[in-house]
């Protein structure tokens, strides 16, 4: 299970890295090359995003990657194929990330079964709070998959505990308000928030939104269990090409 994998990894590493790609961006071939570089650079787990045209929680960088991948023909079925190839090739856990209508349209139960068959370990669906996702939680549980829930700085203690009780694997803490890819101050205010999360949550903590360099990862070491790098690797692909991601990641820890 995902949680025990994370705990085991944490015995030899101070902090784990989780990266993210948009499947099919800039192309299917290149996104697999990026996955390979990420694995070679030692990342511990990875989110594979199935593109959706209205990614509500994502900022401009990931939004554009979603829309470009859709234009290039990324659809649920070839995303499953991509995930299947990645799972076969690489030993780390892979998660799906997408928006709820993609799962709903596919059929939530069928989607979870297919995820398990593909060898994925869990899913992040930012627009599906546990209150609206009871079928999803049941299907994920049946298939031994982790539904990853999100906590934000506006989440009250009571709700943190509730979200933690519904989730498995780990809890994803959003470092600030807003969408992915913006600026985050890794300093004072965040400290209190992460302490609050730690107290309320019994699962490992991942922190994302604005994590983009070595200093950010250093700040999170000891305060969280997993640092999540999202938009930054897409920015690097856009600026320096998909070959530059590995170097960047190797210098993060």
């Amino acid at each position: 299970m995902l949680e025990s994998y994370i705990k085991q990894r944490l015995q030899t590493k101070d902090i784990l890295l989780m990266t993210h790609i948009v499947i099919g961006y800039p192309s299917f071939k290149e996104s697999m090359q990026v996955v390979e570089q990420m694995v070679d650079a030692g990342v511990d787990m990875m989110e594979l995003q199935i593109p959706f045209s209205e990614p509500m929680a994502d900022g401009p960088v990931i939004l554009k990657a979603n829309q470009d991948a859709l234009k290039k023909g990324a659809r649920v079925n070839n995303c499953f194929k991509f995930a299947e190839d990645a799972v076969k090739k690489f030993k780390i856990p892979f998660l799906f990330m997408s928006y709820y209508n993609i799962l709903f349209k596919y059929g939530v139960e069928k989607f979870a079964e297919k995820m398990a068959e593909t060898g994925l370990k869990g899913a992040i669906v930012p627009d599906l709070p546990p209150e609206e996702g009871k079928d999803y939680a049941i299907s994920m549980g049946k298939n031994h998959l982790s539904p990853i829930y999100i906590i934000s700085p506006t989440t009250c203690d009571q709700r943190m505990t509730y979200l933690a009780s519904k989730g498995s694997g780990f809890i994803y803490c959003v470092a600030r308000k807003g969408v992915t890819g913006g600026q985050t101050e890794f300093s004072g205010g965040l400290e209190d928030y992460l302490k609050k999360c730690r107290r309320a949550v019994n699962l490992p903590l991942a922190v994302g939104f604005g994590v983009k360099n070595r200093a950010d990862v250093e700040y999170l070491t000891g305060r969280a269990d997993i640092a999540v790098i999202g938009s930054e690797t897409i920015r690097i692909v856009n600026r320096d090409g998909s070959g530059a991601v590995g170097e960047f990641l190797k210098n993060l820890r």
Partner: peptide, 12 residues
């Protein structure tokens, strides 16, 4: 109907 929103919007 319902409320399918990211956690960041839940409280507001």
């Amino acid at each position: 109907g319902g409320s399918y929103v990211p956690e960041q919007l839940q409280k507001v």
